[in-house]
Nucleic acid binder design. Structure first.
Length: 282
DNA sequence: GGCGCATGCTCAG
DNA sequence: TGAGCCTGCGCCC
């Protein structure tokens, strides 16, 4: 489930297993072989995530930039590495000769796996909006973009230049929790509404980091819809609208709808999130 | 066991 | 706008 919380957990796990250790790097699949050779047998300093991007930092200004895309996986575990299964793009191994427990990690199916310098990393990060999981994030940067954009808020929330780390699930859920029509132009939102949505994303994504999965039903928010949802009616479901097209809304019973917006399936409740009408009419 | 779709993004055209 | 990435899951035999 690669939204921002997944990458945050992944970075923590890589740091916990490998930071401060000399690791061997290889590319059983071959596609990352030349780069892997450059970091093989060097010190892994730390791993960090920004939005959906992962950076594994090695000594000598070498960062492995990873983007999992839709179905990439970076499986990190304790133990001695076994024969690679499937297309392993990058394998990291700490063999335990440093007297810490052996560990290894296999990266598969990623959309990006490349070596870069800090300068190149900086250029990439400059293209990202604030990440709700980073304590230094400045939501007013995102608001500045949203405020002057006529694009639908449902599209803006998914745009990594506006907000980093929000994916299709958090988009659908945060819009529902704040009763915002996904097709509403960004410029029509009040600042207070957007600020509340931001703080809700901070809470939802931090909860996702803690749980290891997205659960928007059990995160309370003042002034939002959540507090009035009868818990039993959600029937253990951890989300309100995501992938629930055709089913009854947990709050009002209306049929949850779906529609493709900028190439992705959008889900919303037409009664809880009524169609926005501008003052000019239309 | 096979099929289609999916929490994402880039690049060709 | 569509293909590519080439994994994993749920669903249907």
């Amino acid at each position: 489930m690669p939204e921002g919380h997944t990458l945050f957990r992944l970075a923590s796990s890589i740091s916990a297993h490998f930071a401060g250790r000399v690791v061997s790097a290889s590319s059983p699949q071959g596609r990352f072989a030349e780069s892997a050779a450059l970091i093989d047998g060097t010190l892994l300093e730390t791993a960090e995530s920004y939005g959906k991007h992962l950076f594994v930092d090695f000594e000598g200004d070498r960062q492995v930039h990873v983007h999992l895309g839709l179905y990439g996986k970076f499986a990190v575990q304790d133990g001695v590495a076994e024969d690679p299964r499937g297309q392993v793009r990058l394998r990291l191994v700490a063999d335990g000769s440093d007297e810490r427990p052996p560990a290894y990690g296999d990266l598969r199916g990623a959309t990006a796996c490349e070596l870069m310098t800090r300068d190149q990393q900086r250029l990439l990060l400059d293209r990202l909006g604030p990440d709700p999981l980073r304590p230094d994030a400045d939501w007013t940067r995102a608001w500045a973009t949203v405020h002057r954009s006529r694009a639908p808020i449902g599209a803006l929330l998914m745009d990594q230049k506006v907000l980093a780390g929000v994916g299709n699930v958090y988009r659908a859920e945060v819009l529902f929790r704040h009763r915002v029509d996904p097709l509403r132009p960004g410029s029509s939102l009040r600042q207070g509404t957007f600020e509340q949505m931001w703080h809700d994303l901070v809470a939802l994504m931090a909860d996702g980091v803690r749980r290891g999965r997205i659960d928007t039903v059990h995160v309370p928010v003042e002034e939002a819809l959540v507090g009035r949802v009868p818990q039993a009616d959600t029937d253990g479901h951890p989300v309100y609208v995501y992938r629930r097209a055709g089913e009854a809304c947990f709050v009002c019973g209306s049929t949850v709808r779906t529609e493709v917006l900028v190439g992705r399936n959008l889900f919303w409740c037409p009664r809880c999130q009524p169609r926005f009408r501008s003052r000019a009419g239309r």
